[in-house]
């Protein structure tokens, strides 16, 4: 089983990036979450291969896409933050501690610009969403 999980709030500008990518890919089992909650661990429990797409704030130019092999590397906590008490980076690290990660976990981060409620997605992020969705559709 392989699953693509898009995380994001569709009402908060560039924060919708992961949500949007997941909405366009049909070649994977797709889940869309508004927050990277603890439910992620249950969501991927039957999957071997998992991709997460989420907006990030790392200081890179807006629209930059990074690919992290989360089985090999830790997620930079500050980049994948959340207004919730348990963001996606914390959930991945908790799952790692409890040996509940899938066999393969790739995390794509799309650098966000504006994430305020009611704002539109910036052009650079929209372009990144288009390109990443096409790439993952064929993956």
């Amino acid at each position: 089983m392989r699953r693509l999980i898009g995380i994001g709030n569709p009402d908060r500008g560039d924060d919708a990036a992961g949500w949007e990518v997941a909405g366009r890919v049909t070649s994977w089992d797709v889940s869309r979450l508004t927050a990277g909650s603890l439910s992620l661990i249950d969501l991927w429990q039957d999957d071997d291969e998992v991709i997460i797409v989420d907006a990030m704030k790392s200081g890179a130019p807006v629209g930059t896409v990074v690919r992290i092999d989360a089985i090999c590397d830790r997620l930079p906590h500050g980049a994948f933050s959340s207004t919730h008490a348990f963001g996606p980076a914390a959930v991945v690290e908790l799952a790692r501690t409890m040996a509940r990660l899938p066999r393969s976990l790739i995390v794509y981060g799309i650098e966000a610009g504006q994430v305020e409620h009611g704002t539109p997605m910036t052009a650079a992020v929209a372009t990144a969403v288009d390109q990443l969705a096409l790439e993952l559709q064929d993956a």
């Binding site: 603890l38 439910s39 249950d42 914390a90 690290e93 908790l94 501690t97 409890m98």
Partner: peptide, 25 residues
């Protein structure tokens, strides 16, 4: 410092928590 470090020492406790939370969901 967080539940992540707690899970390393108390995996059964945190495992129960995840299962309880899942039931609520």
């Amino acid at each position: 410092p967080s539940a992540i470090e707690m899970a390393a020492d108390l995996p059964d406790v945190v495992g129960n928590a995840l299962r309880l939370k899942k039931l609520g969901n």
